[in-house]
């Protein structure tokens, strides 16, 4: 597979030089995100996030399986991230690059390990049957900041998702189709979001939000903060790069909280809109006897 080519010397020099003059190539402020768009699919659990030219599609699915032997009371929750050659020709199938490993690891830490989804609620029969919820993350286009977009897509997809309703009757488990019983939402505890800072300059003194692909190739370090709107930090990952002053990092987490509140609001707003779109006239319309034809 062809290797990703570094940007030219001119671009590298210019990006750093412009940042010293408080300029970004697309004219954004340092703490400004690119236009963020979130749409839901026809099915439950499909979220499509566009962040500038970066686009992520996440799809949540659920099936009934046997729980792990060591955790008989918990359901199974997995996030599958795979970057395909469709994203960029330098990504190869079945040979994860560093970007891909870091992305799946960060999503795992942010969404799964922070207990955003109550896995105990996925248990159907202790030790025998449970729900296995899986989110597939597809990167459709890569123009930097995959982490933030992917995290937003995963959270939005899971909050949009409805799993089939079930009942236990005299030891018989019944899974109802959507026609029989309205599917039920997952038991969702809190919504964590990732905010990635990129650092530029000799000592990483310039901190920039939502770096594009070119900026990501030039940056000297990055730091991903995951938190929810209450300001509870789920994880901070600063993987290598230039050491950054602690005060700068503190300021970064402060701004990150404001951004996370915006994300949370966006997801809430889009979910309400989607609910309204699906709701065909409320309870009275459902009870109506007459036919559409």
């Amino acid at each position: 597979m062809p290797r990703e080519v570094d940007p030219s010397l001119n671009e590298k020099q210019f990006v750093t030089q412009a940042l010293e003059e408080n300029l970004r190539l697309d004219g954004r402020e340092f703490d400004q995100y690119r236009p963020l768009e979130l749409t839901f699919g026809e099915q439950y659990g499909v979220a499509d996030v566009t962040l500038g030219k970066t686009r992520i599609l996440a799809k949540a699915t659920a099936e009934v399986t046997v729980p792990y032997a060591d955790r008989p009371l918990d359901g199974i929750f997995t996030i599958a991230t795979e970057l395909s050659p469709m994203t960029s020709p330098s990504f190869e199938v079945n040979r994860p690059t560093e970007t891909e490993v870091l992305l799946s690891r960060l999503l795992e830490k942010t969404v799964r390990r922070s207990g955003a989804l109550d896995t105990e609620s996925l248990c159907l029969v202790a030790g025998q049957k449970c729900w296995s919820v899986r989110v597939d993350v597809h990167a459709l286009s890569h123009d930097g900041n995959l982490t933030d977009a992917a995290c937003l897509a995963v959270v939005a997809a899971l909050r949009h998702f409805r799993k089939p309703d079930t009942s236990m009757d005299a030891g018989v488990l019944t899974v109802y189709t959507p026609a029989e019983r309205e599917p039920v939402p997952l038991s969702w505890l809190h919504s964590p979001f990732c905010v990635t800072w990129s650092f530029f300059g000799e000592e990483g003194e310039t901190a920039v939000l939502d770096a594009t692909w070119l900026e990501e190739q030039v940056r000297v370090g990055s730091c991903t903060v995951s938190l929810n709107r209450h300001g509870e930090i789920c994880q901070i990952a600063k993987l290598g790069g230039t050491p950054v002053n602690a005060v700068v990092l503190l300021q970064c987490t402060g701004v990150a909280l404001a951004k996370v509140k915006e994300f949370d609001e966006l997801v809430d707003r889009r979910l309400t809109e989607d609910l309204k779109r699906r709701d065909k006239g409320g309870f009275m319309a459902e009870l109506r006897a007459e036919n559409d034809r």
Binding site: F14, Q17, L25
Partner: peptide, 14 residues
């Protein structure tokens, strides 16, 4: 030192 002609205007960008 290899820039011919355009060296005076800085790196520029693509």
């Amino acid at each position: 030192t290899s820039g011919s002609g355009s060296g005076s205007t800085g790196p520029g960008c693509v």
